[in-house]
Design a protein around this nucleic acid. Structure first.
Length: 679
DNA sequence: ATAATCCTAAACAATC
DNA sequence: AGATTGTTTAGGATTA
């Protein structure tokens, strides 16, 4: 057994034996790994900028000139990021942290974690953040590519300009124009896209920056240098992870902190002083340390900074947000003044603007790419037909984040591409907790497991994702799905494996858990059968444990319920049903007291296919079944659902007295209480 | 801080 | 004898 669990258990594989503990451990570990990965990743991309140009001196010259602008731009980006995250002080903590976790995970995810694991580990917002992080990473690569291309272009231009005097200026001009046009087009695109993003809260780019494509020549800023923008400060001492964060922060950080931006610069004391003139790295680091895994709850992301009339997009937290400028301005007036004097329309400002545009552009491209990738991933996971809409999609990404509330989001798969990855059933609750499926969303007030499963049936069937339901709810579901509402242990096993890819793996563990649950919960009643025993569900018991606060001793609760008059019982029942797994029951008409008894069991059927008239299996109808109250007519029928692979056909010998079987226990007693049978 | 709930692990007994 | 099925206990984790 030891061997089995060791080898089979999913959890144990990655992180060791302790299920829950593993989670945290896993997360930690991942972060560690991430750090490493990050470090390397960052390092490699970063350095590219300077090296590869030397061919043309003109190019170098240009490069050099542009260097400055880029530097500035880079600083600005960093600053922007920090500024964004800083504003809310308290909020910033959250936002920062929100990014952090995903970052680490994101970095390692491709290699270390399966998508499912990631899904399980990460909360929706985290997932989003992760996505964004990945995008940022990809961006680096993309930038390199892009850089090279542009470099070539520039070189060409330069070559033509200098060496190629012969070439008519017009030709050159045309080329440049064409290039410019291209840039402009892209810029426009990007602007649109950014606007979209902004609306979604994905990016809180300041309108000013996003807008106003400059007419100036692109050459002022060489794309070659772009990578440096992402270099992430390159501060030696700085942990790699931080640099990554910085890279990614444009998206995530922005999104997360966008809300706080508008807020007046009430700097949080403890949190770093973003005001600090140049210590971007530290600022960022400190800010992002904490980890609330969800974005600021209150304000809609879209309400990014700058909503306030009295504020200026380039002014925040008492300082000028212009790239590379961190001048402190006491008030808006002063800032405006500063803006007009220091950042007037000149070459430098123009160049900086251009750089920013480039950055945005890169992001846009990256976003498109990632969107495509996401589509492909989803398609691969059988999620749903991919609909490649690079530019409209980004929205969806952020959509995930737009549910800070933690409520279960409408599955409406179609809506967001992201959703598929996180089956609706996985309320944020289930996810953010970190524990895979640990938090049974189904149990509480979330969507009923049955509908949940119905909707995501394919998903769970194919994706190795742990379902967000408790064992108890799953077992119950399995049993209720059968016409007879009874299953043997083995059949239950089969149902698990059939329905969930996840349960095809760590068999020893979950089977033990299933048995444990069957034994432990009163709601599962074992009924002796000729050839063995089958398990049935006592809905009443199942619902009983539902009431969140019905604490007290179980027995107490039990008594309370049993003590209820039928009407009362029914009422409570209805209430319970309403919020639990019987979607159909909720429909009016279903609940008339008279039929209540039958309804419990039936409810499910109603939902599904026509209830198999359980034939009278005459043989089997045990006495106890009759009590409608208890509803689940536990007719021990020999033939379990045929579906089961193993199910053994057996002679219909009703299990005579259910209660007789096995340990009578209170549960049996209770269910069979003659008194309760209302019919 | 605490109780409730859930999960996992494991020991053990009864049965197949 | 070995595997399966059930029961029970214990401890860790998460949540309210």
């Amino acid at each position: 057994m030891m061997v089995e669990s060791a080898s089979e258990t999913i959890r144990s594989a990655p992180s060791g034996q302790n299920g829950v503990g593993s989670l945290s451990g896993q997360a930690d570990g991942s972060s560690g790994g991430a750090t490493g990965t990050t470090a390397s990743g960052t390092g490699r991309e970063v350095t590219t900028g300077a090296d590869s140009n030397g061919e043309m001196s003109p190019a170098e010259l240009l490069h050099f000139q542009q260097q400055q602008a880029l530097q500035v731009a880079r600083q600005f980006l960093l600053q922007q990021a920090s500024g964004l995250s800083s504003p809310g002080n308290n909020d910033s903590k959250q936002s920062a942290s929100a990014v952090q976790v995903p970052v680490s995970v994101a970095m390692m995810s491709p290699q270390m974690l399966t998508p499912q694991q990631m899904q399980q580990i990460l909360s929706p917002p985290q997932l989003q953040a992760l996505l964004q992080q990945q995008q940022a990473l990809m961006l680096q690569q993309l930038q390199e590519y892009y850089k090279k291309q542009q470099e070539q272009l520039h070189l060409q231009l330069l070559t033509q300009q200098q060496a190629g005097k012969p070439q008519p200026k017009e030709a050159l001009g045309n080329k440049q124009l064409a290039f410019q046009q291209q840039l402009l087009q892209m810029q426009q695109l990007q602007q649109q896209h950014l606007l979209n993003l902004q609306r979604q809260g994905l990016v809180s780019l300041q309108p000013n920056q996003a807008s106003g494509p400059l007419q100036t020549l692109p050459q002022a800023v060489c794309p070659t240098d772009l990578p440096q923008l992402w270099k992430g400060e390159g501060a030696p001492g700085q942990p790699a992870e931080d640099s990554v964060k910085q890279e990614g922060l444009d998206l995530t950080g922005t999104a997360a902190t966008a809300t706080s931006f508008a807020a007046p610069p009430k700097v949080s004391p403890p949190l770093s002083h973003h005001t600090l003139p140049n210590g971007q790295p530290t600022v960022l680091t400190s800010r992002r340390d904490r980890v609330p895994d969800r974005p600021p709850p209150c304000c809609p992301p879209s309400s990014s900074h700058e909503e306030t009339p009295g504020s200026h997009p380039l002014y925040g937290h008492g300082e000028c947000k212009w790239p590379g400028c961190e001048t402190l301005c006491e008030d808006l007036g002063q800032f405006i003044k500063h803006l007009n004097t220091e950042h007037a329309l000149d070459d430098r400002s123009t160049a900086q603007c251009r750089v920013q545009m480039q950055v945005v552009q890169q992001l846009e491209i990256q976003l498109a790419k990632e969107s495509e990738r996401l589509q492909a991933m989803m398609a691969h996971l059988h999620m749903r037909p991919s609909e490649p809409k690079p530019f409209s999609q980004p929205v969806t990404v952020s959509a995930a984040d737009s549910f800070p509330d933690g409520l279960v989001h409408p599955p409406t798969s179609a809506a967001a591409p992201v959703t598929p990855l996180r089956p609706p059933g996985l309320g944020s609750a289930s996810l953010h907790g970190g524990g895979p499926a640990r938090r049974r969303s189904s149990d509480k007030f979330c969507s009923p497991i049955s509908s949940e499963l119905a909707q995501n049936h394919e998903f769970y069937k194919n994706a190795d994702v742990r379902p967000p339901f408790t064992y108890a709810s799953l077992i119950r579901q399995a049993i209720l799905e059968t016409p007879d509402r009874q299953l043997t242990l083995n059949e239950i096993y089969n149902w698990f494996t059939r329905m969930f890819a996840y349960f095809r793996r760590n068999t020893a563990t979950w089977k033990n858990a299933v048995r444990h649950n069957l034994s432990l919960h009163k709601c599962f009643v074992r009924v002796e059968n000729v050839k063995g025993a089958v398990w049935t569900v006592d809905e009443r018991e199942y619902q009983k444990r539902r009431p969140p606060k019905m604490t007290g001793s179980p027995t107490l609760v039990k008594n309370m319920i049993s003590g209820l008059s039928y009407g009362a019982l029914n009422a409570s029942y209805q209430a319970a049903l309403a919020e639990s797994s019987f979607p159909l029951l909720n429909s009016p008409g279903m609940l008339n007291p008279g039929s209540a008894s039958s309804l419990l069991p039936l409810s499910h059927d109603d939902v599904g296919a026509p209830v198999e008239p359980l034939p009278s299996n005459g043989s089997s109808s045990p006495p106890r079944l009759s009590p409608p109250q208890y509803s689940h007519q536990v007719q021990v029928k020999e033939e379990p659902a045929e579906a089961e692979e193993d199910r053994q056909p057996g002679p219909p010998l009703g299990a005579p007295n259910p209660s007789a079987s096995g340990p009578p226990e209170d549960r049996d007693l209770e269910e069979e209480l003659p008194g309760e049978e209302l019919s």
